[in-house]
Simulated scan of single mutants.
Amino acid sequence: MLIAQISDIHAGPDLSSLRTLEWAIGWLRSFRPDVLVVTGDLVDDEWRQGYRLVAESLRLLDFPVYLLPGNGDDVQLMRSEFAAVDTWIKATGPMHFRVAVDGLALFGVDVTVAGQSHGDVLPHLPWLMSALADVTTPALLFMHQPPFAIGIEALDRVGCRNGSALLSTLETIHRLPLAILCGHVHRPAFGRLGIIPVQTCGSLCPPNPLLLEGRTDLPVIDAPSFLVHEVSDGGLVSHVVSIPASDGRA
């Protein structure tokens, strides 16, 4: 079972991120994963047309696509513009999703907070606990922000709150998710929430510098990237797919 994950497109009128998205879409059309999950921050600065252009690109894929908003998204614009292209997004309420695909359960938790830049998982734990209660297959949990600080202060200020409450909730169910898969960080990063692996996906816009513990803001040499997750025999292996600058960026 192959699950692709794209995050943090941050499409803007200069079209550079949309060109990167086109490269990723072309690669995915040839590679043909079973599912694509997009974990938020689709456009910059409430660019209305950007949502429709992203939706039109995603519509080229002939396998299921599931989406979450990020802390940089305008949820109402996202809903209205995506509705003009397809019916991926619920009309009201949090944009959670729950789907079973070939013996694997995928859960998306919308942790956005209206009018705020941070996320908060706490209001959605009752939904998540109910959704996970009867799951007997391997599961993956998707969010925009990771449920703990990742060490880059500017990102952690607008991170997801109440990660400890998420862990306490997950520890009450009989089967933990294989991993929690997030975006927000604009670079691949790996950690744990309790014993649950947590991964962040690279971005389709320029990656963030590694501003850890006061280190100098060095030039970023990382390429834009996304992830392909393989679930087999109850285990998970994740692969980073980097996008060549000559094909994906202006």
Rank of each mutant, 00 (worst) to 15 (best):
D73A: 03
D73G: 03
D74A: 07
D74V: 03
D74Y: 04
Q76S: 13
Q76K: 11
L77G: 00
L77R: 02
M78P: 01
S80Y: 03
A83Q: 11
A84W: 14
A84C: 07
V85I: 03
V85G: 00
V85W: 00
I89L: 10
I89V: 14
I89F: 01
A91D: 12
T92A: 08
T92G: 00
T92K: 03
M95G: 08
F97N: 08
F97M: 10
R98L: 13
R98E: 09
V99I: 14
A100W: 15
V101L: 15
V101T: 12
D102A: 09
D102Q: 09
G103S: 11
L104W: 03
L106S: 15
F107N: 03
G108W: 14
V109C: 05
D110T: 09
D110G: 05
V111W: 01
V111E: 02
V111G: 04
V111A: 06
V111T: 09
T112K: 00
T112S: 01
T112A: 02
V113G: 10
A114V: 14
G115C: 02
G115P: 01
G115I: 02
S117D: 11
H118D: 10
H118T: 13
H118R: 10
G119D: 03
D120S: 12
V121G: 04
P123F: 09
L125S: 05
L125N: 10
P126I: 10
P126D: 13
W127G: 06
M129A: 11
M129I: 15
S130N: 14
A131F: 05
A131I: 05
A133S: 11
V135F: 15
T136M: 07
T137G: 08
T137H: 13
P138K: 14
L141E: 00
F142Q: 07
F142C: 05
M143W: 15
M143E: 11
H144S: 04
H144V: 01
H144K: 03
H144Y: 03
H144D: 05
Q145V: 01
